[in-house]
Design a binder for these strands. Sequence first.
DNA 1: TGTACATCAGTGAACGCGCGTTCACTGATGTAC
DNA 2: TGTACATCAGTGAACGCGCGTTCACTGATGTAC
Lengths: 207, 207
Amino acid sequence: MTKRGYHHGNLRQALIDAALDLIEAKGPTGFTLSEAAKQAGVTPAAVYRHFEGREDLIAEAAIQGYDIFADLMEYAYQSGQPSALAAFEATGRAYLAFARKYPGHYIAMFESGISVNRTPKLSAVSARASQVLEKAATDLSQHIPADKRPPAAMFSAHIWALSHGVVELFARNSPGRASPFPADDLLESGIGIYLRGLGLIGPDDCS
Amino acid sequence: MTKRGYHHGNLRQALIDAALDLIEAKGPTGFTLSEAAKQAGVTPAAVYRHFEGREDLIAEAAIQGYDIFADLMEYAYQSGQPSALAAFEATGRAYLAFARKYPGHYIAMFESGISVNRTPKLSAVSARASQVLEKAATDLSQHIPADKRPPAAMFSAHIWALSHGVVELFARNSPGRASPFPADDLLESGIGIYLRGLGLIGPDDCS
DNA sequence: TGTACATCAGTGAACGCGCGTTCACTGATGTAC
DNA sequence: TGTACATCAGTGAACGCGCGTTCACTGATGTAC
């Protein structure tokens, strides 16, 4: 809602929003430029005033997603300070919360098949998101004796993979694949067990 | 290669194989019935002699995938006996190996969006696959003191999610998303840390 | 304030394309006598 | 063995459809004087 006055007002964002709706509803490849245009009340050709084409529209949606994602993770990280452990756990929870709250963005980011190196902008904003998680992991790894400390990048990758797996398999209502447990619990308990395995929480405070 | 003699010989399987190739190359939605027919050297209409349509062909590919998958996991499970721990770890490794070796099947099974309840056959064969993993988890959980033992279904879900996440994010050459570590190592070390968190392996035998 | 002009967001028609699916058909294969 | 017939896997043409993209255009908005 920038200018309010031109023909449409803010078609660019309206198109992105429509794309996100459609991506959420039909998957990244079921999404259609023409349908997004229709949903925004506009001719397909109008899209080309704002984007280079179909792919560019998806990429823009992904960029906005990474931005929200990084902000959310950053906020969660801060909110757990000064405890490295609390910060890390909050960051993990924020991952799932993001996937839940912004499924269209999530899909555009991780399932649309667009390369993260498509544009410098996209690559930068996705790097920012990874770095938050990696920072949380690095902080936390300081608490592990140096000789048995795995690389922070490795265990941030573990947590990312676990989170992504939970989202894909159990958080989304994967057709016909019922979750045995609520996704939150699954992720929370999984991270808990993992951190205990790293010796970062005592053997008994089973969260 | 059943009869060898009719017009094509074994068009049905040739179509499934072509579909798997295409799914691997272009994703589940980029896959096209017409192209699969062409790759099998046949008119699109011929497909309808063997399948009800596009979806049915994908479902059949998924069914064959689940069958191979379950066999592979079963074999890995057996190969680790009588050690519950070895069996469990082998099963986890088999997951990744399957995803690596049969990417077309893996995508048809987990990313094609077809419901696992589409047909009784599909639902049965997918249940068989889950059960192998769950059995391995149940065996293993016997070694955890009953009072602090999480449900086996839960930790089989954890391992499944971790494996799936590793596959999706790091094993497939996700466009532009370079893996910081080899996927095998990532999964192996992740499972190791997780199992230590469950108290199933000692704090020092860092596999 | 009023007028002439430039800008440019969105239109509407058209394009070529490949899709999934249908249908009547053909002709090779298998079978009964 | 030879002939007449039934089967049915695959053909080829056709269908209606929605897609992404292009293009010359129009007409509302903003601006210079």
